[in-house]
Amino acid sequence: MIYLLRRELLLAMRRRAELINPLVFNVMVVALFPLAVTPDMARLTLLAPGILWVGALLATLLSLDTLFRYDYLDGGLEQLATRDTSLSAAVMAKIMCYWCFTGLPLTLMSPLLGMMLGLPMAVMPVTMLTLTLGTLAFSCIGSIGAALVVGLRRGGLLLSLLILPLYIPVLIFGTGAIGAATAGLDYLAPLAMTGAITFFALALSPWVAAGALRLSLND
């Protein structure tokens, strides 16, 4: 597993320009939103949880279709499927690598973006925790959709249609936790639901995505 993760990290470093795109996109969404809606800080504070989460969701979708595509095109997936190494372990390594270069930077940027939207500093730990769990869930769930469309040309649109409904519960509970913390209410229930969805997806998605990849390879 450590070898596979190291391999994925080295391959990802060769495509650093592609990895920066989601981060730039997220910053642009958050920065332009006040210009399109209102510069009133009080209203922006109410909208901030939704803005941060929708920005993170769309930024994750931006490069998700490339999760397995390069390995599919150069035959790397076929080699992984025929080696002694479990394909689900390779999928898990890809998920963690993708999250490290996409979800983790989005989470680390969230305090700065939250301050731009007027979120109190006391809410930042909850914001970072929910985004850590949520972006990991996005990566896990998205890996299943990416595996299903890996053999299709221009499968990005179909990928979005497949996984967006599955993202909605994470989005609801994540924004609910930040909104409750901002209002001074108990946020543990939505935070616990976000964590439960994340760990459930983390446990199942490598196996489901590996099965979907085998179907794509056999087509």
Score class of each variant (00 low, 15 high):
Leu80Gln: 09
Arg153Gln: 15
Gln79Thr: 08
Ser143Ile: 00
Arg6Gly: 04
Gly179Tyr: 00
Ile178Trp: 00
Leu19Phe: 11
Leu113Ser: 02
Ala210Cys: 04
Ala81Glu: 15
Leu164Phe: 14
Leu164Asp: 02
Leu77Cys: 00
Leu157Cys: 05
Met96Ser: 12
Ala147Gln: 04
Thr107Gly: 12
Pro125Gly: 04
Leu117Met: 05
Ala181Glu: 06
Leu171Pro: 04
Ser86Asp: 09
Thr60Arg: 12
Leu44Pro: 04
Ile95Met: 12
Thr194Cys: 06
Trp53Pro: 01
Leu185Gly: 11
Leu46Asn: 14
Thr130Val: 15
Ala36Trp: 13
Thr175Asn: 05
Tyr98Glu: 03
Gln79Leu: 13
Thr38Asn: 06
Lys94Tyr: 12
Gly174Gln: 11
Leu10Tyr: 05
Ile163Glu: 01
Trp99Ala: 05
Ser88Thr: 12
Val170Met: 15
Ala42Arg: 11
Ser143Phe: 00
Asn26Ala: 14
Ala146Ser: 11
Cys140Asn: 06
Val149Pro: 01
Pro190Met: 01
Tyr70Ala: 15
Ser110Phe: 04
Leu62Val: 07
Ala192Gln: 04
Leu117Ala: 07
Leu57Lys: 09
Ser216Met: 09
Leu166His: 13
Asn21His: 14
Pro165His: 07
Arg83Gln: 14
Leu136Ser: 03
Thr66Asn: 11
Ile168Met: 15
Phe200Glu: 08
Thr130Gly: 10
Arg6Ala: 12
Met109Ala: 10
Leu44Thr: 11
Ala59Ser: 15
Leu61Pro: 01
Leu217Asn: 15
Asp65Arg: 10
Asp40Val: 10
